[in-house]
Structure formats: C-alpha cells, structure tokens
Design a binder for these strands. Sequence first.
RNA 1: CGCGGGGUAGAGCAGUAGCAGCUCGCCAGGCCCAUAACCUGGAGGUCGUGGGUGCGAAUCCCACCCCCGCAACCA
Length: 500
Amino acid sequence: MNKFYITTPIYYVNDKPHIGHAYTTIAADVLARFHRLKGEEVFFLTGTDEHGAKVAASAEQAGKLPQDFCDENSAKFQLIWDRLNISNDHFIRTTSDQHKAGVEKFLTKLKEVGAVYEGDYSGLYCTGCEKFITEKELVNGLCPDHKKEPEVLKEKNYFFKLSDYLPKIAELINNGELKILPENKKNEVLGLIKQGMDDFSISRESVKWGIKIPFSENQVTYVWVEALQNYITGIGYGSDDKTFNKFWPANIHLMAKDIIKFHALYWPAMLLAAGLPLPEVVFAHGFFTIDGEKMSKSLGNVIDPDVLVDEFGSDAVRYLLLSQFPFGADGDVKAGNFVIQYNSDLANGIGNLTSRVLSMVEKYLDSIVPVKDFEFSDEVAGIWHQYEDAMKRFQIDDVIEIIRKLNSFADGYVERQKPWQLAKEDKDQLNKVLYNLLESVRHLALMVYPVMPEVSEKIFGYLNQADWKNKSFKELVDWGGLESGQKVEKPQPLFPRLEK
RNA sequence: CGCGGGGUAGAGCAGUAGCAGCUCGCCAGGCCCAUAACCUGGAGGUCGUGGGUGCGAAUCCCACCCCCGCAACCA
C-alpha cells in the first residue's frame, strides 16, 4: 500500500487563525482526503508553533504563563479546523514532550556530525524588551515599545553550517529529486543559492521560552529551527520509530510562499546533515489580497474563517476559498463575490442538479433506480482521468473546474433529453436518461468529496450509498455503481440560495 | 541595476507562437424536471506602450510606463 505524508506549516500561536491559515490547511485537507479515497495510507500533519520571545512577551502582556497562553491559542486553531472538517491525523504542538524529545535527538545528531559550530551572534538589543530586535522593527532608530536606542550586543550562539550543504541541495533541485513547486519558485530558490547565503544561528541565549539546546547549559533552540523539525517529530522521530520510518520522507510540504526559503533550503540542509531523506515536494501557494489590498491587521481587512463558516457553512467556505484563483499563484479575493459564487456554483450548480435529478426519479420512477445504461461511461472515465491528473499536479482549482464541467454537462443533457416529455412518450429512453443522470450525480458526489466532504456524504445518503467508503476507489469510479431496483431519496436543498 | 509577481471583454481570471477563452454580470430567446434554478444565442477586447525576430506573437527578444508582493518569524 502506498503511503502519503502531507504537512501544513505549524502556525504561530501569537496569531489568531485567519483566512490564510485556513487556505493552506483546507488545501492540504483536500489532498489528504483524495489520497485516502485512493486507498493510500495517509498521514496529514498540522499543528502550532509555540516558542520564542514573542510568545513569551504576549503571554506576559496577557498576564498569563507562557504555557497557558499557548494552550489557549493552540486550542483556537484546533477548534476552527474542527469546524472546517480538517481531517488531520495528528496535531503537533512544539511545547509537547513528543516534539521536545525529537528536537533533542535531532540537534544532538547535527552536533555529532559536525554541522554545528560555536560563533558570535550580533544584533540590536533593546534592554527594555530584553531581546534582540530587527532593524525593520525600529521606528526612527528607536525601539517602538521603549523609545530607546538599541545597543549592538554579541552573544555566543551555535551556528549551522548551511554553506556546506547548499551545493548538494542545488544539485537535488536541478535533477528533480527535490521538487520545488510551482516552477517559478524553484527558480527563485536557485537564485537564492546563487547569491550565497550565510550560515544561520540555531540558538539563542537571550530567549528563555524555548527548547534547551542539549549540548549547552544556557541556550535555547531558535524557534524557526525547532519549528521545522515538527515535520519529523510529529510522526514520531525521537518517540515512535515505527511510525516515523513508515511515513518519512514527506510527500509534500505545503505552505504559503513567504516561508519557502526555510522549507526549500534550511530544512533540506538540516536533513542532509542529519542523514535523513528529503521531502519529495515543497509546494508554495500564493498570497491573498482582499479587494485588491494587502491583507493586514492594521487595515482591518483580515477575514476570520469563523465568520465565513457562520455565513456559508464549512463545505462552501472550503470550496469558495479554493476556487478563487489558480493554486500556487497570488490572487485577489472580493468578499462580495462569495455570495454570488455560492449561488451560481453551489446552489444553482451542484445543489440544483442533485435536486432536479432526484426529483424526476421520484416523480417518474417512484424513486427506483432504473436498468443500467452506459451512455456516459466513457465520457466520465475521461473526466476522471483529468481529475486525477489535476490532483497529481496539486491543481485544486483545476479539480474544481472539472467538477463544474461534469455538472454543466449533466445539466445540458437534461435539457436535450427533456425527461418530462419522455415520461409521456418514451419510457425506455426515460429510464436510460435517468440512469445516466443518477450515476452522474453519484460521480459528482465522489469528485466533490475531497473539497466538500459533508455535502458529498449527504448526496451518497440520498442515493442510499451510505456504505460507499467500504468500496475501493476503482469500484467507485467504475460506471454503474448504482444498482437497478434500489431506492433513492428526495433531497433537501444542499445549498439554500443566499439572498443579496 | 536587491529579488519576485502582474498589466487580456464591465468585474475576476485562463491562455508561453497557428482561427482570443472561462466564470460572473448584461441583452434576447427557449424550457417548465429543479433551490425564480436550467439550456441556447448575442453584445462587449487595437491581449500596458514602442520597437524587433518569425510565414505567423497575448505567447520569443529589447526598451519603456504602471500596479503589487518580499527582503529572519502574519498563510
């Protein structure tokens, strides 16, 4: 049996879940569900990143212990993922014992192979904040919080010999063993290597809220370094070798484009050093703008996924987010378009087709599935071929396009065949037409499943196929899954129209 | 010369050389099974600007204009 291991980034607990987190996570869920459908053994990992000076500061500001603060905020992510029907197999938290054990093992390994050395880290240090701050954070050269000029401070740090591994990584990217997708991101990453990159510090002396460096008394692991390791600790590195060996390397690390450097360079470099295989694919999707503007807290245009789910329901939110623009590219989201698209694609499309087909079967055939007919068999097999190909290329927007095509193909067929006339004139033809339509609805439900699992289950319910998950993918995709003589139900509207 | 993305119908986008497409909206018909849903047809584009290469360019090359993102922690 094939395995499929997919990850999202772990999200920083300092943030509230927003539409961007949801986008990445839903996309990963779609892929995970598709691979499960195919009968593969899937491990889908997401989680939260909980260490670092910022978290400690936020906790203090909130008057809470860092761990309590993390517990609360991590729970917010878990809650919204539940609401969105995210089917992750595990939720990794970087403050868990599982993670800490793996990090210690990994760092020790890096030290053993000589990939780590001691050096001086120098940066701007604000004595008010008691931490390093970046130049970007300064306002007129002063710390924005304490209105003080930061001093240049050096501390002893451990560094990772990134430069030792870059040539090898460039080679692996070029020969396709490490795939960076989409293609333009690959060039970007190769460009970074060409420019040359400095070794990076993997520890902090000034930070307290973190995982202790196993070979140092007073240093903690730099958050980014430790966060990346969630991809191995989350499946048991350092705690459960069996699961780890089964699922590593990852088939795909999915993320937004801002953190591609860490995933395409730093992380593979550390893995190489530790002697572990590299992930197959690093896929970076694009950013949203909201009504043409950058999404930002200060503009107040950040969309809360909770609010969207309240308005549209979980399935529709999943569909609407993923159908906005090609997966991988940047794109604009017009908030006002959601209602329009909900009505046209979901209410008038999938919802209405299901409703009209099942209503006709009820009205003309007493809800009994007629004799099998294979008119659409080849057509639909071809559509499945495109569907699987799109999934393989991670083009979820294409998947949605294909679903729409099957939908409108079936709608057009209804118009051409006019079952309401056949009911009076030609019962044989009516049976054929309705069988083809019923099967089309079944196939539609199956294609829709990774994107909209709830609605898919509902349609299978109306078709009295509650046991569909026990069947193999091949059986499900074969034409003729509905047995003649069985009953089907008349549906309730799957997507009630929204007025606007 | 910091890196990168983009400028195609009213809106949002697809389209890396061979009759310029999709969705929404708009207009006109049709249908009556269905969630006032569905189907058909139509109007609407000098594909940012100027050059170049080609039998042929939205698509390749050069220059320019404009928008946007990123540059150690907001997907």
